[in-house]
Write a protein that binds this DNA or RNA. Sequence first.
DNA 1: ATCGTTCCGATACAGTGTATCGACCAGTAC
DNA 2: GTACTGGTCGATACACTGTATCGGAACGAT
Lengths: 237, 237
Amino acid sequence: MYRPMRCTVSGMLVWERPEPLNRPVPAPLSRERIVRAAIQLADADGLDAVSLRKVATVLDVRPMRLYGYIASKEELLDLMVDAAHAEIRPVGNSWREVLRSLAEATRHAAHEHEWLADLLGGRPQLGPHALASGETVVAALGDVDLDAIMPMVAAVNAYVIGAVRREIAERRAERATGMDEKRWQASLGPYLERTFATGRFPALATVVRDAAHLDADHTFRIGLDFLLDGIEARISR
Amino acid sequence: MYRPMRCTVSGMLVWERPEPLNRPVPAPLSRERIVRAAIQLADADGLDAVSLRKVATVLDVRPMRLYGYIASKEELLDLMVDAAHAEIRPVGNSWREVLRSLAEATRHAAHEHEWLADLLGGRPQLGPHALASGETVVAALGDVDLDAIMPMVAAVNAYVIGAVRREIAERRAERATGMDEKRWQASLGPYLERTFATGRFPALATVVRDAAHLDADHTFRIGLDFLLDGIEARISR
DNA sequence: ATCGTTCCGATACAGTGTATCGACCAGTAC
DNA sequence: GTACTGGTCGATACACTGTATCGGAACGAT
């Protein structure tokens, strides 16, 4: 930017040298661009692929430049999580609809950004978009007893975080083994089979072998229904 | 070990040289010792303090030695989590007692090993101790409909994971700010106050300011009660 | 004694987050 | 025009990470 044009490469005068084509004024840096670049990397190759150097490279900038906008990598991760919260917009008329919508929207966001599962619940979420989600939910719970609101929302959030984490963890495990051998029987099936064959976990073996296996959607919704039913029972008491 | 004793340091003959004092045969390496060392580091300084080099140093061993016992750092973390599951021994006679015990025991373990909160739910837990916990729980649920067991346990586990994560995250935030300024009003209180003063989150502000604030124990138990109530309603239907 | 074979672990590599500080800039005074 | 100054920016450096590689030592067989 401040650098003087001392680049008379190969002796050509300015008049002969063609205008540099693809060197428009690089869009000025901003937290938003940084976070977008980081999210793009994380979406593509997972959270481990997010390094300040790679982010800087994507933005065609030197790494230390980023420290003008964020104080540490952790802050960048916080910003990423808050950006994800921008996509979580619960809707609904009753408290039950809103809480269910909150849960589904969070799960949906984690499906689109698997790295979110690694970050959710890891640090307090106080960014503007997270607070906006909270505001929407709480506002829709206007007819609920004031002291009951926090516990309700906290419980639903806790359930969602745990459920989504396990879901994503399993999805990754299946991808890691199942990609190689079509069915995820590859290494987990046999391993469990062998382990159960030892007879040390008879009850567990029975459940895993004989009980109905629900898919991820149903499992999530059943747990959520448990919770919402329990909440309903308590607040209408 | 195989190295010949070529260390006639300073020319003293064997007869004059004192026996090396604190060099007993180093207890033979084992996964258990490695995991214990890793847990010791994590308990003391958090998960980030666990590096293969530091673990090796604690065991007075060269880093690459560890790869004879584990294939990657990730495996070490898996072993740590399974070791933690050894301390999770749910008890109880009814399904409700057992599930509550499972939840409380998991929470207790995470309080003693905060790093557990970072790892819980991050990967499928299939180690022997984790399976043993599962076996205990499932065995105590013998009188419950077979197809209902998995969803029940999964829901409780999901809730616990999310609740514990948030709890530990908040505890850390309080420690980080509160240690410096006695009360955690240090930076969060004022920040929230300022944010709410903008009037953009009126409903949230009302709840945070006017609603009763429960402590961590109550919050956890209330959410758990919601869930258990909901489960009870469904299975006795 | 010599040759394979095996396996251990020192070294090396490619990468990380970030502290430091020299270089360079605009602005001011003369 | 020149000299100085105050402040900012980012190249370099540092300490550290997980792990691939492969020279060489140890051992069994010939």
